[in-house]
Computed example of a mutant assay.
Amino acid sequence: MAETRPHITISGDDRYGVVAATSHESHVADHMLRRVGFERLPDSNHYGLREPDRDPTRRGQQAVQSLRVAQYAVTSDAAYDVSVQAAPRTNRDPLVQLKNRSAALVARAGEAASARALDADIRAAQVVVHDQVRDPEGTLRAVGTDLRTREGLLLHGEGDLRFVESRLEHTSRAFDAFYAIPGNERRDPRLSMMQRAQAATAISPARAGAVLPQQPATAVAYRSATAPQQPTRAR
């Protein structure tokens, strides 16, 4: 199943601060970049972080994390890539440990921001949740539609901890993936609708073998007209 996952690159720029570029034009990527704080640069297909002088490194890291949580493939400079900055746990240097904890907090902050944005979209009816079920691990999984982009969504989690697991080109594909989740015993309602439609249009065996009654033929007999009798004259 193909997913809509535009490739995004985030890097530093001497003039505009933190900038982002997409590998191809996509209204979905444009929407997401604006959601995490970027805006289109004038006369360019690149994006710049709004208020570039306000804590650019931390905000760039949050943008990278939020985009990745939303299932977008992102490459970035090391300064904005928290995963690259994470050091092995065996390092007991207090400064390194402090940096690791800060990076983890930034990552969680980015995920929390993404979850809050998704929850707000659901409350505003911009994202519609069609069905949901708990998987064998107890995680709430759901299928929905982003009414702005017409994409199908697979969601996991709930409340302020609900995230977009994947974005699919059509809602029907999202339904296929949702009902294929291991442990999901829900019946696909589309199947029952198809069955009812087929039953309504099918010809039953009894009706198929029935013979319409023939209307009996009516015999019509024509009689020749008799000549009228001549009056008898008396002699």
Rank of each mutant, 00 (worst) to 15 (best):
T4F: 03
T4Y: 02
T4M: 05
H7N: 00
H7R: 09
S11C: 11
G12C: 01
D13E: 12
D14M: 15
D14Q: 15
R15S: 05
A21L: 11
H24T: 10
H27M: 12
A29L: 02
D30W: 00
H31V: 04
M32H: 12
R34I: 03
V36S: 07
E39C: 01
R40W: 08
R40I: 14
L41K: 05
P42E: 04
S44W: 04
Y47L: 05
G48Y: 05
R59F: 03
R68N: 14
V69Q: 08
V74E: 08
T75G: 02
Y80P: 12
Y80D: 07
Y80G: 09
S83C: 13
P88R: 04
N91E: 12
R92I: 12
D93Y: 13
D93Q: 09
L95I: 13
V96E: 07
S102Y: 12
A109T: 13
A117P: 04
L118Y: 08
L118D: 10
D119G: 00
R123S: 02
A124W: 14
V127N: 14
V129I: 11
V133W: 05
R141D: 11
R141F: 11
R141K: 14
G144I: 01
T149K: 01
G152Y: 06
L154V: 12
E158H: 13
E158W: 14
G159V: 03
G159D: 01
R162W: 02
S166T: 13
R167T: 09
L168T: 04
L168Y: 13
E169A: 12
F175M: 06
F178L: 00
A180K: 02
A180Q: 09
G183L: 00
E185V: 06
R186S: 07
R186M: 07
D188W: 01
R190N: 07
R190L: 10
L191R: 06
R196M: 06
A200H: 11
A202Y: 04
S204E: 10
R207W: 02
G209M: 09
A210W: 09
V211L: 02
Q214I: 10
P216T: 04
V220M: 14
R223A: 11
R223H: 07
P228R: 13
R233Q: 15
R235L: 12
R235P: 14
